[in-house]
Each structure stands twice: as C-alpha cells, then as structure tokens.
Design a protein around this nucleic acid. Structure first.
Length: 131
RNA sequence: GGAGUCGGACGGGCUGUCGCUGCGGACCAUUCGGUCCGGGGAGGAAAGUCCGGGCUUCACAGGGCAGGAUGCUGGCUAACGGCCAGAGCGGGUGACCGCUGGAAAGCGCAACAGAAAGCAGACCGCCGUUCUUCGGAACGGUAAGGGUGAAACGGUGAGGCAAGAGCUCACCGGCUGGCGUGGCGACACGUCAGGCCAGGCAAGCCCCAUCCGAAGCAAAACCAAAUAGGGAAACCGGCCGGCCCGGCCCAUGGUUUCCGGGUAGGUUGCUUGAAGGCGCGGGCAACCGCGUCUCUAGAGGAAUGACAGCCGCCGCUCCUCCGGGAACGGCACAAAACCCGGCUUACAGUCCGACUCCCCUG
RNA sequence: GGGGCGUUAACUCAGUCGGUAGAGUACCUGCCUUUUAAGCAGAGAGUCGCGCGUUCGAAUCGCGCACGCCCCA
C-alpha cells in the first residue's frame, strides 16, 4: 500500500467547492469547519482546502495546508469516499499547529463521516444528500 | 578599552522514512497515460505595489489645449521619481548626514498679541509752535528708543538736526547690473557702477523647463464540447406553372452536410535574460567594452513539504575536578505567480572592511 | 493584476482652501419625583492611527508605514 496523494484526489474546480458548501454534511470542531459531500464519481475521496487570509500571512497559510495535506495522506485508509473541504477557523495559530493536533481534531470526525457513508452506501442518491 | 559613522557578505547545517512538482533517460502502452532511475525545486527583501522599462493587444496624419509627473549642475542608463560625481545652504567636535527651480509675472494667506502684518503707517515716546484751569491739550515734524509677535523695513561709527532719520559719509553684510579669471556647468573669486534694502509661504493657486497614447499575462495567440441562434449548399416537400427550365419557401416545414463568430475547457505565452561568475582594459565613480565559463524554480483551488535524530547559536536553571557537562525553551522577517532595473518598509543573529572621537599605557 | 475609501471622546459622527477640536448618545454630580424613567442644569473625558517633513503654527498640506473596508477583471 502506497501513501501517495496524486492530483486526481484534489478538488480543483470552483463548482465542486460550491457543491460541497451548499449540498453536503457540515461538521465542526474547535479549529475547523468540514464540508463533506458524496461525490459518486470516484471510489476514493477527494480533498479541498480553503484557508482564508484571516488565518495569517502566506507562510502561515501554506503551513496549515501542508500539515492538513500530510494528515489526509497518512490517514487515507480511514477516509470515506467523499469530497471533503476543510476550512480552518481564524483563531488557529499556524506556529502551534502540527500533525498531533490535526490527528486529535480530525480523526474522530473521519470516523463519523465513515459511519454516515456506510449508512448510505448508494452514494449517487441525490435526495439523501440534499436532506 | 569605550562610543560612533559608512559600506559589503550571509541569513542555520547534515542524515533517515514517507510525499509533491516539473525536466532528462529507459520500459509498458502507443488515445489520455503509467512504472522505475537520475539530477533540479522560494528571497534579500520573493513583500508593499511607490516609480521606470521590456513584451502583448487596441488606438493613432501633424500640432495644440486639458490632465499628470519631475525639478541645483554634469554624467550613467533601455528608462526612471534611481545611481555616481560635484555646487550651494544647514546640522554634527568629527567620520559623516540632510535639503534643493522661480516670491523685484500675477492672485491669495498670516489666528492671538500688537499702534501697525505688507507698504505703508504711528500707541507710548522725542522735538517745535500755540493755548493752558500748569494736570496737560490741539496742530505739525520724526521714526533713534519702548513694548507685542514666528516675523516690524539693514549693522557699527561719525557728521548733521529743533528732535531725528541712508539725510550724508566710511567700513561691513545683502541685492541688481556690467566686466575679468577659473570651471562643460551649477558656481566660486576679483573688480566697477547703481541704489540704500528689496520680508515669509509655491509640500496654496500659479509661472518656467522637460517627459507622458491606453490597458495589462485574468494581456494575448491557437484548438474547441454541449446548448441556443446565424449563414450556405444538396435532397424531400409546398407554391407559381399544362410540362421542362427557372423562381420563391417572406412571419413557414423536414433531413443531411459544411461554414464563420464564440462560451465551458485545453494548449501556448513560461522562462536564455538590458542574465550571472571570473579575468583584463577605460573611467574619480556610477558604469561601459572585450575574453572566457555557467544554465540557475516554473506552480497554476496553486508544488518546493511532513515527521524524527544529531550538530551549531542564544537565554535560563542545576552540577562542577572551574577545563566543562546536563535538562528545558527559543532560532527572525517573510514565500515565486510574465520578466527585469530601482525605491520603500520588515528582520533573530553572524562575519568582514574603511574611517572618526574620547580615555589609558608605552 | 488594477483602483478607491476610512481611522477624531466609551459609541455614532461633524470639523479639509492651516490659527485655542465640536455635536448627539452614554457615564458622573445636582434639581424634580415616594422611587425609576422622562425632563432641567452642570462637569469630566481626546498622543485627532503612527513616524518624518513643509510652515511661526498641522486633525487639515507632502512623503512613508500600520490597520480596517469596498469595487473591477
């Protein structure tokens, strides 16, 4: 099993982001807001990161995105086959943020998303997503 | 030894595991692509976006107005509001640093205080004449002295006068004009004449000189799905017509093919360039020329990382055989987005060079 | 990438062709009222975002920053 994360597993279209924002699950932790939506077109999930300028300057934002990307790459077995958009809240301190904090915050959330995805195995059902 | 001025260089290093990206090679597939190997992968400011250029598209006969920018002189440059060298003025004991067109073209502004704030004038004074209730008042002369202010119409001395005054004279300071010398020039020095003095603010309007077409890689070029609409042709159909030829289908049919515009999307633009290193030569320098060597990021919901270990530096605590050792914490500012030349701003620390002042010792 | 606006008392805002910084609300004190609210009177509160400059003098003018907001592509 390789722990790679190629470009096909990223969300690269604005329409796909807005679909996640409007029609999907919405989960909250202390530092993050997570939007998740069953993509239906791929077996593996895809990841999108939206880090606004309120999180700091370019160096801080790059570090947050890199740590989050590394977390999803290392825990891709626990990840459901969904489009997931992660947005940090603005009080996340980039210099105090590391992989341990990301695991503590996001691992229970991934388990919750997996159970939701197991409960609805027919991922292409549009009415379930809209509800 | 202390304090300081100016300039330059660097801005953590090494190893391992797992990743991202594009380049080259091999293999598989040859339609997209995939696997493996190799060697690349943020900065001195990449930043702010304050200027200037290249490049691209659009516009454009020439000239002017408006608007904007710049502003001592000379040079450098593709260009600049940048840099270098100088001039004048100001600050500093000094190394050194800062500022810069025009106020005798015009308009405008100056609160409060003060008599008066812009070219003349006179509150207290001083002087003369007249009057007097002897306190002074009126008229006239004057601008030396007083007080106000950020700023009050040259300074010193002598002559002069009723008192005074550039009123006159000498010297000094400043101004204008002429001449001479040095300098490419800003300007400096000298000399003669004039007139006695011309206030400040143009980062208020303005005047003068020079420069400026607009927009920006989301520029722009190429390929181009679906849907809607446009054009052309062929056939079927309909109409005119007895039939052929021919014409029409206008608000009006159906099928097929083609065409151009162009959206989503994709590719290019995209990194070899006013490039950098070294050497030689010219120049006080900025910079330029020649020779030689090197290729040094090209992403694109946006890569250049994540996690460990060791070393380096700093702070603090503890131990110490005073050589040092151990634990903990920290190591800045800030990340390419078409590319260059500058400016400005942020920055933990480290190193180098030149110079100045003070103290001590010889 | 390009362009614009704002920052003044605890809050919301005036004040811009330079001259001792104001208003409303709030707070405090007093009057009124049995008390509160309302009303009346009075008082306090400001490095005018920061720095440098021009000027005799800067909230105002010039330059450089910081923070916040908005628009276009």
């Amino acid at each position: 099993m390789s722990l790679t994360w190629p470009r096909e597993r990223r969300i690269t279209r604005r329409a796909e982001y807005t679909a996640c924002y409007s029609g999907g699950e919405r989960l909250f932790t202390k530092y993050f807001v997570v939007f998740a939506r069953s993509s239906g077109m791929t077996e593996t999930g895809r990841l999108g990161l939206a880090v606004t300028k309120k999180c700091g300057n370019a160096v801080a934002r790059n570090r947050i995105k890199r740590v989050l990307r590394s977390f999803f790459r290392l825990h891709q077995d626990e990840m459901p086959a969904m489009d997931i958009v992660v947005t940090p809240k603005k009080h996340l301190r980039a210099d105090k943020f590391d992989l341990c904090l990301a695991e503590a915050e996001l691992l229970p959330l991934l388990a919750e998303l997996s159970s939701v995805s197991e409960a609805k195995p027919d991922a292409s059902m549009p009415s379930g997503d809209a509800a």
